[in-house]
Design a protein around this nucleic acid. Structure first.
Lengths: 255, 255
DNA sequence: TATGACCAGTAACATAGGTTATTCTGCTCT
DNA sequence: AGAGCAGAATAACCTATGTTACTGGTCATA
């Protein structure tokens, strides 16, 4: 329904998913959303390890990821950024970035200086609260990824990641029916899940053959969300969607 | 030297490791440090998943951990809290805890209500900044654990964890020579590193036989920190110790 | 002084996932 | 239309780590 409307202000939608915002708040968010757009091609770095933290960025379109490289070339993807996600909020306290961020698909973002950020939050306490919430949910996601990598098997890990991404995209209105964009290669999945691309391929095949998902090219279709949740032992609590104004569709899918 | 002085205010030491604090700041921190002490026995839960976030806690003595249980009993330890660490700062924005916290050894902590916290930070901007820093470093540690679990082998993981704990304890003055308390069983190490206790035992043996560590009972001695760093590909950047007033000993050990 | 927990160590065996290599497909760039 | 390239699928084989089982040590409690 709203999912394909690329002009929708996802920043408003994100804030609304946390708190009730006023018309005045929305005007402020629209001003940010309509600021200068920056574009980055797939595989392009947005932030590099060692850089001084500069601005706060809001992802308008496309997917990005945080990642870290080890000395011998191994790479771990640490988190995904989806449209509407905010990154490097508060990071300006630190001197240097300890990781890099790169585009996974064609990306557009707007950026916000420290000053603009302060001006926004001082005038709009509800927005400040929503930004807090967003920050804490991101921390909770990072903890859940720790659990995922530490305890779950390859199949469970993969299923868990798909569940999480599906719910996060749904909250932002980016799932049509049960289908969403999925601009991620198997190599990237492998670097996310601590597996090899070969094994990701095997396990995707298994999910397909068990009629849980369909995945062609960039389109992911979730055929049996409950089944996936069960394999993954997915419990959406950590996404903290249980606020008063919770989005109903997002809750209905998984007990 | 100072390490065994249990009356030292570690909260001051922690803040000093981030920013230059005034005498007035120290007085405020002393008041907190001398508040009511809570004690918890080993294996005792301090916070349970599902609880409403209550107070902010500062660990005075002993070690604790965050953990999460899966439905079938698997457990992942998500982070360690060492003396002087602060937990659940800001958590009050959320409705429910998404994980539990438990004592690993006999623990003492002081707690701070939301109101007391606001009073402290409004009057002491340097402290607020240091608390920010602490929060961001904790997030960086969580990211590094993601890398650890996703990319490193069992031996590397174990070595990395020991390096991190050693540096963190050293910053707090809790390493005497090259020896520190280590009140962690092999089962707990296993649940931290995503391994089994049997395999932790094997890899500890390997570290011992390579003359990198000595570990008897609760005492851990790091015999060759550089060697450990090398195995682990440990790079302390993510701990963000490179502030102006950096603690010299903590930097010297690992390039 | 026995008894029972809990922890650490170790050995024999099992398996999930890694490694290497090959093929096929669909793109993009001439 | 053909060349070149990235991604995906799959097969054969390998190994790091898990599993199960037994031993002995230490400590608290009866």
């Amino acid at each position: 329904m709203r999912g394909s409307d690329t002009s929708e202000n996802l920043l408003v939608r994100k804030m609304e998913s946390f708190v009730r915002v006023s018309g005045d708040d929305i005007a402020a968010l629209d001003k940010i959303w309509n600021g200068t757009r920056h574009s980055v091609a797939p595989q392009g770095d947005i932030v590099r390890e060692g850089d001084p933290p500069g601005v706060i960025r809001v992802l308008m379109k496309g997917w990005a990821c945080r990642y870290k490289l080890l000395g011998d070339g191994r790479r771990q993807i640490i988190s995904f950024f989806l449209p509407g996600d905010i990154f490097d909020l508060n990071m300006f306290v630190l001197k240097k970035m300890d990781h890099s961020i790169r585009a996974l698909s064609p990306v557009q973002y707007v950026s916000l200086s420290h000053i603009e950020f302060e001006r926004l939050t001082i005038g709009h306490p509800r927005i400040l609260q929503a930004l807090w919430w967003e920050t804490l949910v991101n921390a909770a996601i990072q903890r859940e990824w720790t659990v995922n990598l530490g305890q779950r098997s390859a199949l469970e890990r993969l299923a868990h990641l798909l569940c999480e991404l599906h719910v996060r995209l749904k909250v932002m209105g980016l799932v049509e029916g049960n289908t969403c964009e999925f601009p991620i290669t198997q190599i990237e999945l492998a670097d996310t899940l601590g597996l090899t691309a070969v094994h990701v391929s095997r396990k995707l095949k298994e999910l397909r053959s068990r009629c849980l998902i369909r995945l062609n090219g960039n389109q992911l279709q979730i055929l049996d969300f409950d089944g996936l949740c069960q394999i993954a032992m997915f419990d959406a609590n950590y996404l903290h969607l249980d606020r008063e104004e919770a989005i109903p569709e997002a809750k209905a899918d998984c007990g």
